[in-house]
């Protein structure tokens, strides 16, 4: 596998990375940029653990090759808040509602909720469920997540 150099924009910063062109974005984010938000869950775009915002839309990063994202603005869980010491209102609502047990799926849940609320600041129950449909949580904290999303004041 030959590598190439790519310029990608992550969390409002440009990064030059070297990787095989087919390398899924997830491994670039985790192993090269050392980000912890997006996590490996399935590699099949089925569970949402690896979600990132790409130009504002929530998408799985586990099956998008790095060569396909050079034009996009990528935001990870780390980049939601304007600076390192604050939390985005969705992050804050999830923490205050204690909407997690193990927390492994939190990344995908928060990223999906941010994308949902950007388009629809006051979603009803059904709209929340539809917006969160790509995220799997095995601990059963979805009811708490729904409550957290309803509380968010953007």
């Amino acid at each position: 596998m030959d590598t190439a150099t790519f310029r990608i924009s992550v969390n409002r910063k440009a990064h030059i990375v070297e990787a095989a062109p087919a390398t899924p974005l997830l491994y670039v984010l985790r192993d090269i940029l050392e980000l912890n938000g997006p996590r490996f869950g399935c590699g099949l775009a089925q569970c949402g653990a690896c979600m990132v915002l790409m130009d504002g839309n929530a998408v799985p990063s586990c099956n998008i090759p790095v060569q396909a994202v050079t034009e996009a603005e990528i935001t990870t869980l780390e980049g939601l808040a304007p600076d390192a010491d604050t939390l985005h209102p969705v992050q804050k609502a999830f923490a205050e509602e204690q909407a997690a047990q193990c927390g492994y799926c939190l990344n995908g849940a928060i990223i999906s909720a941010v994308a949902l609320l950007r388009n629809n600041p006051k979603p009803n129950d059904e709209e929340i469920r539809n917006g969160m449909q790509r995220v799997l949580c095995r601990c059963g904290t979805q009811a708490r997540m729904i409550r957290a999303i309803k509380k968010v004041e953007l």
Binding site: L35, L77, K92, A100, L106, N107
Partner: peptide, 21 residues
């Protein structure tokens, strides 16, 4: 009592064994 580790997790802190580097 709120679990403090949930605050770390929503803030993308390296909580998991998966995050060890």
């Amino acid at each position: 009592v709120a679990r403090k580790d949930i605050y770390f997790m929503v803030a993308a802190q390296p909580v998991f064994v998966h995050n060890l580097r």
